[in-house]
């Protein structure tokens, strides 16, 4: 679990996870596209995310595809969120999203 928190404690790595969340199964080239990071930096961040099991990779033909692996994040949630809180938390999250949308 330390690896997961260390991997998440970096805005660039969270941005890479956001990109995979928006579109799963991207190549390194896809992920670098439009990012203000060098290819080497992205490679290094992906290695840290993969070591923390937050990113999973598969070979698809000649391409290496990167996937957001939400299993460790789910385990963090299960550790501190109780069964009956889940619905209320989802409602609060939705409320926050709606209200902040309106501010924009």
């Amino acid at each position: 679990m330390d690896d997961v928190f260390k991997a998440l404690a970096d805005a660039s790595r969270r941005a890479l996870l956001d990109r995979l969340h928006a579109r799963n199964g991207q190549t390194l080239t896809d992920l670098c596209d439009g990012l203000a990071m060098t290819r080497q930096a992205v490679t290094k961040h992906l290695a840290i995310l993969e070591a923390a099991n937050l990113v999973a990779t598969v070979r698809h033909g000649r391409e290496k595809l990167h996937y957001l692996n939400p299993v460790p994040i789910h385990q963090i949630g299960e550790r501190w969120i109780r069964k009956f809180e889940r619905g209320r938390l989802a409602a609060l999250g939705e409320l926050k999203r709606k209200l902040e949308e309106r501010d924009e």
Binding site: N24, G25, N53, V58, H60, L65, Y67, N69, V71
Partner: peptide, 11 residues
Amino acid sequence: SKPEFVYVTFI
């Protein structure tokens, strides 16, 4: 087509 989901867990 490429896989939609890939999940990994170490047990």
